[in-house]
Amino acid sequence: MAELKGINLAMQTPFEPNGAIDYGLFEELIEKYVSAGVHGLVLGAGTGQHPYLTESECNRLYELGAKRIAGRCNVVCQTSALNMDEVIRRSQQAESVGADALMILPPYLEGPSDEDGIFNFYKEIDAAVGVDIVGYNIPQATGIAVSPRLFDRLSGLKNFNYIKDSAGDFTVHQEYLQTRGRVLNGCDTTTLYALMAGARGVIWGAANYMPREAVELYNLVVAKDFERALALWQRMLPSLLFIWRAPYTPSVLRAAQLRGFGTGNVRKPLAKLSAEQDTALRAALTPLFEIAS
């Protein structure tokens, strides 16, 4: 079983202005994030615009990424797809190039939404791979909520050992923590409190623009230095509140660009922030620049 504790950075995919992937910059960003001390990199995450990447692009990103990371931190690859055979094919390919774990959405877009149907979906994948599966609870995007009861049932499978919880319902999050499974927080605005409550770690999009601060926050919680953790959190929070309510991925990528990580470009159909949104984001980031100065 992979140990996915700590900061698993949901890594951006850097794009050129025309929407092509900048693979050279992708490798440069890996170096920056590994140097910042992150415990894992999630390649092809939602923040990496997985829905708008082709299967071949994902395969290349995962192969390049695993090779560049070279065991210095965990490699998690998202292998979600609508077609069952494609999920398994993507998953086996990611495993073959060195993925430590696979992040997989439930069967969204008119797939089975009953608990038996979701369980059987993951059960088939579980039997086809030999690395950890990270289920993904993000009902605001998929329309499917993984109940704590279902998560506990899924945790009885051989490889289904984690769930990424991005729903933002802290009550459900704590119910997950009462099961036998391992929980990774995915809601930016509850990160500190999820870690304090016992989440094993996080899969964190906002870490793209504040990797060192994210690692520091985790280390402070582990050390039970909650006063300093809360002080750091207060400097993080304005930008986290902004990105959670604004267009998420364009906000994270723009924030990352402003702090020296990436191009800020998105791939269609996503669009960059408006001038008004950009001004508000800059204001929300001000406390983080004060930390760095």
Rank of each mutant, 00 (worst) to 15 (best):
L43T: 07
F289Y: 09
Q92C: 09
L61A: 04
A206D: 06
V221F: 02
A36K: 11
L43M: 14
C73V: 06
A283G: 05
P250E: 13
R254N: 03
P250V: 12
G168V: 11
A271F: 05
S251V: 07
P112I: 03
D22W: 07
R90P: 00
R60V: 01
L220D: 09
C187K: 12
N185T: 13
R60A: 03
P51N: 11
G24D: 15
S166W: 05
S166T: 14
Y23V: 10
S239M: 01
D116P: 00
D85V: 08
L270E: 06
K5R: 14
H39G: 03
E86S: 14
Q78L: 11
R72S: 05
V266C: 03
Y136K: 10
L253Y: 06
G260W: 06
A66W: 00
L25S: 07
A36W: 09
V75L: 01
N137C: 06
L281M: 09
A128F: 03
E276G: 14
L288N: 06
G37M: 08
I243S: 01
D114W: 00
Y33L: 08
L285M: 12
N83M: 08
P51R: 09
A271I: 13
V34R: 00
V38L: 04
D100F: 02
Y193W: 11
A45R: 05
R72I: 03
L177I: 09
F121P: 06
A167N: 12
N161A: 12
V266L: 07
L64T: 01
R282S: 10
A283K: 15
L43I: 15
K123Y: 02
K158G: 03
G143F: 07
N59E: 13
R180G: 11
L184V: 07
G19R: 11
F15C: 10
L258K: 12
H173S: 15
A214H: 05
Y136V: 05
T179M: 08
L240G: 00
N59W: 07
Y162F: 15
S91G: 09
L270F: 12
H39N: 14
Q174G: 00
I118W: 04
D126N: 15
Y136C: 06
W233A: 01
F170S: 13
E55G: 02
R89I: 01
E175W: 06
P148S: 13
L237V: 01
C187G: 04
